[in-house]
Simulated assay, not measured.
Amino acid sequence: MDILYLLIPLSVVLVLFVLASLWWAVYRGQFENIEQEGERILRGD
């Protein structure tokens, strides 16, 4: 039972870290034009 006092806060911190990482990626424009990368692979050099 004592381990829950450690695991619950750690899981909350992990969830906050994941959400912050996703927010940062969206804010920095990582998902702006995802179709272009797929087309770049098919076009070739």
Score class of each variant (00 low, 15 high):
V13L: 03
N33S: 02
G38I: 00
E37I: 15
L14H: 12
M1H: 09
E32N: 08
A25G: 02
N33V: 06
V15K: 03
L42N: 07
L10V: 12
E39D: 14
A25K: 15
W24S: 08
L16Q: 07
M1G: 12
L19Q: 10
V12K: 03
F31M: 04
L4C: 08
Y5H: 11
R28I: 02
L16H: 00
A20N: 12
A20T: 13
R40A: 10
L7W: 02
A20S: 11
V13H: 06
L42R: 15
E37P: 02
E35I: 06
Q36Y: 14
D2G: 00
R43V: 07
L4A: 15
L6A: 09
G38L: 01
A20I: 11
G38K: 01
F31D: 03
A20M: 07
F17N: 09
Q36D: 15
L42E: 15
D2V: 11
P9D: 12
D45G: 11
L16F: 00
S11N: 13
I34Q: 01
L42V: 00
E32F: 03
F17A: 14
S21C: 08
M1F: 05
G44I: 07
L10Y: 09
I3C: 06
V15I: 14
F31K: 02
D2F: 10
L14M: 11
L19N: 10
G29C: 01
P9Q: 07
G29D: 00
Y27W: 06
W24L: 05
I34N: 09
R28S: 08
R40S: 10
L7Q: 09
V12M: 05
L7H: 01
I41N: 13
L4F: 03
M1I: 06
G29H: 00
I8A: 01
L10H: 10
Y27T: 12
L6Q: 06
M1S: 14
Y27S: 12
I3W: 14
E32I: 05
R40Q: 15
A20C: 05
V12C: 01
L16A: 10
A20E: 14
F31I: 00
V18S: 06
R43A: 07
I8G: 06
L16D: 02
D2R: 04
M1P: 08
W24P: 08
E35H: 09
V15C: 04
A20K: 10
E37K: 12
D45H: 11
R40H: 12
F17C: 01
